[in-house]
C-alpha cells in the first residue's frame, strides 16, 4: 500500500496507487460532464440554435473598405440622424458598417424578419461592435484590415444602440451608432 504524503514534503517510497472508489466516481462524472459540454458546443448547438457563431472574415485594405462603405451609404441613404446618414438597404443585402475613432457609420434601418449580411471593419484602430438591447448584447471584434462578416436577422422592432466595447482611445466612450428595425 502506497503512502499518503504532505504536498509540502518530499514523498518517499511509492506514492503511486490505484484510484479509490471516491476518485473513480468523481472522475467518471466529471469526464462525462466534459464530454457533454464538448458535444453541446461542437455539435448540438450548431445543429439547433438560432444564435450561431459562424463569423466569416477576409482581409481588406482599410482605404478600400472605406470606399465601399461610402458607396454603400450614398446608394441607400434615406435621411440623417444627428448629422449621421441613415441608410435603408433592401432586405437580404450586404451592409457595410465602419468603425472609426469615435463613431459607427452609417445608421442602418432594417426590416424585421429579413436577413442581412453585416460587413464590419475599422478605419483606424481596433473597435468592439456591441449591439445593446439591455438585458442583452451582441458583440463582435472589429480589426482594421479585416472584415468581420455576420448574418443578422432582427426579430424585434425598435431602435438599437451600438456602442464600442474595445478601448479605442481617449474618446472611446463617445463612440456610438444606431440600428433601427421597422416592420
Amino acid at each position: 500500500m502506497a503512502g499518503r504524503f504532505s504536498p509540502l514534503a518530499k514523498p518517499q517510497g511509492t506514492w503511486w496507487s490505484p484510484l479509490g472508489r471516491d476518485e473513480r466516481l468523481w472522475v467518471a462524472i466529471a469526464a462525462i460532464w466534459g464530454l457533454g459540454r464538448f458535444l453541446m458546443i461542437a455539435f448540438i448547438l450548431p445543429a439547433i440554435g438560432n444564435e450561431q457563431n459562424e463569423i466569416q472574415s477576409y482581409r481588406i485594405d482599410p482605404a478600400e473598405f472605406h470606399r465601399l462603405a461610402t458607396e454603400f451609404t450614398e446608394a441607400h441613404q434615406i435621411g440623417e440622424m444627428d448629422g449621421v446618414p441613415v441608410v435603408a438597404p433592401p432586405p437580404g443585402s450586404d451592409i457595410y458598417l465602419e468603425g472609426q475613432q469615435f463613431a459607427w457609420r452609417p445608421v442602418v434601418q432594417l426590416k424585421r424578419g429579413e436577413q442581412y449580411r453585416f460587413l464590419i471593419s475599422s478605419r483606424d484602430v481596433q473597435h468592439g461592435f456591441s449591439l445593446v438591447m439591455s438585458r442583452h448584447s451582441l458583440n463582435f471584434q472589429v480589426l482594421p484590415g479585416f472584415v468581420t462578416a455576420i448574418h443578422l436577422t432582427p426579430e424585434q422592432v425598435g431602435e438599437f444602440a451600438v456602442v464600442c466595447n474595445e478601448f479605442c482611445g481617449a474618446g472611446h466612450h463617445v463612440m456610438t451608432g444606431r440600428i433601427i428595425v421597422t416592420d
Binding site: Q52, I150, T153, Q156
Partner: peptide, 8 residues
C-alpha cells in the same frame, strides 16, 4: 436563445 436577433 432569448436574444431577439438570429445570428449565423
Amino acid at each position: 436563445s432569448t436574444v431577439p436577433w438570429r445570428v449565423r
